[in-house]
């Protein structure tokens, strides 16, 4: 038998050649890892094929009109999802704006020596708890707390600044703003957690060097720490956006599910995920095909956003170095 290890070892060495068990464990682990990797790819491909396959009749029937159409009427077989695409992107970007600002601020606050370490650990746990709250609870909270709270402000904004398109309509309960606010809170834990990791990954030496050169606390944070962690923070934002695009139940309860395209933050809108969730349970065969088409569009949007995010990130990385 060929024993390459024994040959190379000195007789009194404490090293042991890998036993047969070691080799088998190693091999089977490698095998399992490969199976897992292939399974993930197969699953994604199968998912796309399944949804795509079921969407084919819808795509053939409605083509591009489906994406540019603004009417959804199952009775007359007219289907269009432009308002839903608009609402999905608008609500997700609004949420990213609000959630991103607060998430990154929190990450800075918790990592840059503003708090004693023990207290900041408590805060961190509280933020992470936000991620564990079910979507439907967020929706109910939105209906019973957020909407009544912002109603007076919305009325005031509409009365005084109604000329600005963002405030052009009155808020009638559900609408884009309450949806975006709740969505912002939902994506906040993701953004805060990933941004904290990014900031903590900046070597201590960098910070010490900044202080050593006479930088103030804020100069060190804004000019040195945040730029060094920019890639990670950007990744946090992309992840948050991805979550915002796919969020369903809370949005279905808060966004108003009305097929219209409006710049106004107070108008009811619609999102793709809500459209899918609300129409699937009772959909007949000819409605399933268009819903599958809509699901395909949602997947494409998420994919584009993620790819654009990664590209921007690698671009930023190159710029940093």
């Amino acid at each position: 038998m060929n024993k390459p290890f024994t040959v190379a070892l000195a007789p009194d060495s404490v090293c042991q050649p890998p036993s047969r068990t070691d080799i088998y464990v190693d091999r089977s682990f490698r095998f399992l890892a490969r199976v897992g990797a292939i399974a993930i790819l197969t699953l994604v491909v199968a998912l796309v094929l399944e949804i795509g396959g079921k969407a084919v009749p819808g795509i053939q029937k409605y083509g591009f009109d489906f994406i540019s159409g603004v009417v959804w009427d199952a009775n007359t077989h007219r289907f269009g999802i432009l308002p839903a695409i608009w609402g999905t992107l608008y609500s997700a970007l609004m949420a990213l704006l609000i959630g991103g600002f607060f998430g990154v601020s929190m990450a800075i606050f918790l990592t840059q020596d503003f708090l004693p370490p023990r207290l900041s650990a408590v805060f961190r746990i509280i933020i992470e708890l936000l991620a564990a709250i079910p979507s439907v609870v967020y929706g109910l909270w939105g209906i019973f707390v957020v909407i009544p709270a912002i109603l007076p402000l919305a009325d005031w904004l509409n009365a005084t600044l109604g000329a600005i398109p963002f405030f052009a309509s009155t808020l009638s309960g559900p609408g884009l703003l309450p949806a975006a606010l709740v969505l912002a809170i939902m994506i906040l834990p993701t953004i805060a957690a990933v941004a904290q990791d990014a900031l903590r990954a900046v070597p201590l030496k960098t910070k010490q060097a900044a202080y050593g050169m006479g930088a103030t606390h804020w100069e060190a944070i804004l000019r040195v720490m945040v730029p060094s962690a920019a890639t990670g923070i950007f990744g946090a934002l992309v992840l948050g956006l991805g979550r915002a695009l796919g969020e369903t139940m809370a949005l279905a309860m808060l966004v108003g599910n009305s097929n219209q395209i409006s710049l106004s933050l107070f108008s009811p809108a619609n999102t793709l995920a809500a459209l899918l969730a609300l129409n699937f349970p009772e959909a007949g065969p000819n409605e399933v095909e268009v819903l599958m088409y809509a699901a395909l569009v949602l997947m494409a949007i998420t994919l584009v956003v993620n790819i654009a995010g990664s590209l921007l990130m690698s671009y930023a990385q190159r710029g940093n170095k």
Partner: peptide, 16 residues
């Protein structure tokens, strides 16, 4: 029908 094409105005909202 189970769903109809309701008027698309700011004063029509929908909930599940």
């Amino acid at each position: 029908g189970n769903t109809v094409n309701w008027p698309a105005t700011d004063k029509f909202v929908a909930s599940p």
